[in-house]
Design a protein around this nucleic acid. Structure first.
Lengths: 334, 334
DNA sequence: TTGTAAGCGTTATCAC
DNA sequence: GTGATAACGCTTACAA
């Protein structure tokens, strides 16, 4: 490994001069600077991150937190899409992106301990178990945090506009003649699920429609949707003419279940999802759904985190930043 | 920030003793150790990663490399699935996972420079532009590397068994009466695409069937599949009775295109994909496909990388590790 | 403009 | 067993 001392020795100057030259300080003459840069390159010098960070106390790194316990993580393409956008944005600014881990070598650490250990600049919370004790201390630590879709209180949050989306769905369904709209909600430990349910009730209420036909799915996936629909048919005597599902996967489960029960989608019952997963274009029927803007969510989250790191005014406010969504009408609604 | 000096001062011992106690050295009496641990806990001590790494030259961190240029990255759920499995495995061993970046603060770095900068222990290459110059120096640097699905020469590789998968597809189609099998290949800059094409030719050759009906898709996605199918119908006079597509997305594009051309799947033409993307179960027709085992690929890759880091015998051999695949028969084949 | 030296928080090598 | 003390590679006052 080549160090600044090696360079200094070769040139015959002080290591501090090398350091300054490498950091493009104006306290070094141009000729010296040029010489040092040339030798550094020739010798294949690369700075050492740990030494630099130890000296500067600037880590230039950002942690990504997935609570593994929920079984929605990196694999869920909504989150990997957000992460991709986030990563692209912050890496371009020179930050490195590391997954927060609960283990270091052989020791177990809490999230906060890990952040201190790494001297992290900020943290993106992607998915989260709201009941996780470790999150509280993290939140109170003063470390810059931003979260997407998690619903942590007192944390800056970037999330799809579930209210706008739900309103668009309901109003669209009504405009197409729906009289009895049901909702298959997502699991209530998810903040978005709660928001969508709340919005559902609010909007129907505004139109003086009954909003009681609601079943909570156990999870966001296909099977939960299927099961929830079956539960709905057991619990209610009526049959809805439209179903608003809290996710595309749930919606697909609902559609399959409806088919099994002998209903036609959309002729008998319209179904709407949420997410706009790529393949919903190709299912049969293709799915009417609310498109979430992953890129924008990821980018906004990055901006808000960076603003906090840079201590910009108001940056740390626990404001919820709602990203617009779009209704994509396809074949599953009549 | 609490340091070992703070602890030492409070207790009235040397910092080196604290360090030893914290590292569970047997050079410290049990009573001292207990005392130190207690005080450390009480004071909220967390070690500093940078200082430790600087002193030990052990980084306990692994880099993940996505070549962004190809537009398949984190978002592609095949890769995010592999990454998830990989991450889980190595984090459990105490490694941290960081994305390799080309930028640090304001400086641009090559991959190798970044690895040196971070003093990384090893690197997982996920997607890669084979022509990327920076990869060569990385490969030759001696840093432990493992790759999935990339086809880098001289690098330990973990990949689905494309030969086995292709054989299963072809033999299955033949067993169902197919006489004329076409292949929509993936882009030839992808190693897997090349392997699947090669396997296709080999297997058909073994059965003395013609393997000339091949079109290369521009990419792995839906639209490329659709376009490739159209190109195939322009280029060949014959109509195949079965089409083997190099990915599920391509297969779905093919199916849509076939529908547009008035063909029925599977009645007129059978279609098979590759990947087993979750939603292919719910398309219409649901897709017969080859399931790749993401978890196993990720885990195997992790094991091989760790073995290299630990300098186990033969660990660095540039062996290709083929992970078994499974044929999932659904409705798109008759 | 350049050099000296202290310090960042650990670990590791010696003495004691 | 315990304690000084020198690394680790870099940045940064402060001197020269």
């Amino acid at each position: 490994m080549v160090t600044i001392y090696d360079i200094a020795r070769k040139i015959g100057c002080a290591s501090s001069t090398v350091s300054k030259a490498l950091n493009n300080s104006k306290e070094v003459s141009d000729s010296r600077k040029a010489e040092i840069l040339a030798v550094a390159k020739e010798m294949g010098y690369v700075p050492n991150a740990n030494a630099r960070r130890l000296a500067t106390k600037q880590s230039w790194s950002i942690g990504i937190l997935f609570s593994e316990d929920l079984n929605i993580g990196l694999e869920h393409h909504f989150f990997s899409g957000i992460l991709q956008a986030f990563k692209t944005y912050v890496e371009d600014l020179g930050y490195e992106v590391t997954f927060v881990s609960k283990k270091v070598g052989t020791q177990s650490l809490t999230y906060l301990e890990w952040c201190k250990y790494k001297d992290i600049d900020g943290i993106l919370i992607v998915t989260v178990d709201v009941n996780d004790e470790n999150l509280n201390e993290l939140r109170q630590s003063g470390i810059p945090i931003v979260t997407v879709d998690s619903g942590l209180i007192n944390v800056p949050t970037v999330i799809s506009d579930n209210f706008q989306g739900t309103r668009m769905v309901v109003e669209y369904l009504m405009s197409r003649g729906a009289k009895r709209i049901a909702h298959i909600a997502g699991p209530m430990r998810s903040f978005s699920a709660m928001e969508r349910l709340e919005a559902f009730k609010t909007v129907l209420g505004q139109y003086e429609m009954d909003a009681s036909m609601v079943v909570e799915a156990y999870n966001y996936d296909f099977n939960s949707g299927r099961n929830a629909l079956m539960a709905m048919f057991r619990a209610f005597d009526e049959v809805p003419d439209a179903i608003y599902a809290a996710s595309d996967d749930i919606a697909l489960g609902v559609i399959i279940a409806l088919k099994e029960l002998g209903y036609k989608v959309p002729e008998d019952i319209s179904v709407v999802g949420f997410d706009n997963i790529e393949l919903t274009r190709y299912t049969s029927p293709s799915l009417t759904t609310v498109a979430q803007d992953k890129v924008r969510i990821g980018t906004e989250a990055a901006k808000r985190l960076i603003a906090q790191i840079n201590k910009e005014a108001d940056a740390g406010q626990a404001v919820i930043n709602r990203v617009p969504v779009e209704l994509i009408v396809r074949e599953s609604t009549k």
